[in-house]
Design a protein around this nucleic acid. Structure first.
Length: 443
RNA sequence: GUGACUGUAGCUCAGCUGGCAGAGCGCCUGGUUGUGGUCCCGGAGGUCGCGGGUUCGAGCCCCGUCAGUCACCCCA
């Protein structure tokens, strides 16, 4: 077989990168569980009509089809790989509503697929870590405050740069636009969302151009987008812009409550930013985006929001709020820039050196004795010169090499310091920090 | 899906007006009878992304194609 070429957008880490990723996943999982979220996993595919409920993503959904599917074969038509974990979760809730207890708190860590053109931090296959809370009929507002705080807790447990969560509210923005007499609020939202990229002049141009707003309307939209605050002070500034609508008042009230409550729990973490939009159109209230401080160009690493109508069947409504961490995006940046490194590329803590092939059984017994006490151990693959065997360990970052002695004794060497001393395989234990690979930040 | 740029050794790259395919790092051997990292000697490794064309001759020029990177779109 010819040498395969890498497929961009389908990231595969080397073992040390995977150690970093797994440690991140472990930490997220631990924190989510600490907050009482239960784990679920959903199938990789959903019916297309389910997947396409979130709007302009039809071009990005991968469809499932048998290679030799015959015409008229309906067994696998209409299935697509899931695009995120929120839509499958909504379907899961409806399907199992009789067996779940509400409000239902779940976390879900899985791969998702999007037919995008890959770029730095943007993939066609990537891992998301979601938390969501759904209620039956109603979902108390305080969960919209709780959720970003859980996420902040989870992300703060990782050895990564600080984060900043930006919050906005769909009701606020839509109410504001409506109060101005703007009909196509979604399109205006998308245009305003480009503010950071193309600047106010061009946004103003596209608002008054394609979207047909008046100068005054466009000015008001831009003025709204410029507003950001770490406390409730934004409300007066919004009101000063002159728009009025009941939905606007509702949104202002909600956003104020989120920001003020978060400020109390974690000052400086959360900021009201009235320009963030969120493309997914199922959000109906609070929306979140998260920046890694110093890596703003990476885009949001954790987003979500409130959705009232996603899981709805007949009279049954299950409003929810959720956030999703882009684990692959995070890992690719932090590993790629050397900001997170694993202390070694294998779990092995001890390599048992092999004096000669005849001693393999003896060495296996030594390894077993160490493993029985939870010490990850491997025996050298070949009875090479000890220099080679030490190098085998060194290349992999294995900190200790164990030397069986001819007289039946044992010595263990810390190959980082070169210190070597007598040891008993049934009693010797490495320092706790050497027991497993560690992930450290900074470089 | 649109556009720009880039494909030479495992990695980072050099390769002049078209004339024998190179360096550094990494990897392997050895430096006397098994304890690494430094140093020294030696060595392996390339259908120059792929296909076609022009030419006496193509890594270099032309066309196509595939892949990658970036931007747009959208988004974790």
């Amino acid at each position: 077989m010819a040498k395969p070429t890498p497929l961009s957008g389908f990231p595969e880490w080397l073992p040390d990168g995977r150690i970093v990723e797994q440690q991140i996943l472990d930490t997220l999982r631990r924190t989510f569980e600490l907050h009482g979220f239960a784990s679920i996993e959903t199938r990789a595919v959903e019916p297309l009509d389910q997947l396409l409920r979130k709007g302009e993503i039809d071009k990005e959904v991968y469809v499932l089809r048998r290679l030799q599917a015959e015409e008229g074969d309906s067994t696998d038509v209409g299935l697509g790989l899931h695009f995120d974990l929120t839509v499958p979760f909504a379907r899961y809730v409806l399907e199992n509503s009789g067996k779940l207890q509400f409000p239902f708190r779940r976390y879900q860590i899985q791969k998702v697929w999007r037919g995008e053109r890959p770029q730095d931090g943007r993939f066609r296959e990537f891992t998301q870590a979601d938390i969501d809370i759904v209620g039956q009929g109603e979902l108390a507002f305080h969960h919209e405050v709780e959720l970003p705080l859980v996420m902040a807790d989870a992300l703060a447990s990782l050895p990564i740069p600080p984060i900043r969560i930006q919050v906005n509210n769909r009701k606020l923005v839509e109410g504001f636009y409506r109060g101005l007499g703007i009909a196509d609020t979604a399109a205006v939202l998308r245009a305003v969302d480009k503010l950071d990229k193309i600047g106010p002049r061009k946004v103003h141009g596209s608002l008054t151009g394609e979207l047909g707003l008046t100068d005054a309307q466009a000015d008001a939209c831009l003025a709204l987008a410029e507003i950001s605050a770490e406390d409730g002070s934004f409300a007066d500034r919004v009101k000063a812009l002159g728009s009025a609508d009941p939905l606007l008042d509702e949104g202002l009230d909600e956003l104020t409550r989120v920001v003020e409550a978060a400020r109390e729990h974690a000052p400086g973490l959360l900021v009201a930013d009235l320009r963030i939009a969120r493309g997914l159109d199922y959000y109906t209230g609070t929306v979140y985006e998260t920046q890694l401080v110093g890596h703003e160009s990476l885009g949001s690493i954790c987003s979500g929001g409130r959705y009232d109508d996603l899981a709805t069947a007949g009279n049954e409504r299950y409003p929810g709020v959720g956030m999703s961490v882009g684990v692959s995006r995070l890992v690719s940046r932090l590993v790629g820039q050397g900001l997170l490194t694993a202390s070694r590329s294998v779990p092995t803590a001890v390599l048992v050196a092999l004096p000669d092939e005849e001693s393999r059984a003896t060495c296996d017994r030594i390894a077993s004795a160490l493993r029985r006490r939870g010490i990850s151990t491997e025996v050298a693959p070949a009875a090479q010169k000890y220099g080679k065997q030490i190098r085998y360990a060194e290349r992999r970052g294995i900190p200790y090499v164990w030397f069986p002695q001819a007289d039946g004794g044992h010595e263990v060497r810390d190959i980082r310091s070169g210190e070597q001393s007598a040891a008993d395989p049934t009693a010797w234990t490495p320092p706790a920090e050497d027991l497993h690979p560690t992930v450290t930040g900074g470089s």
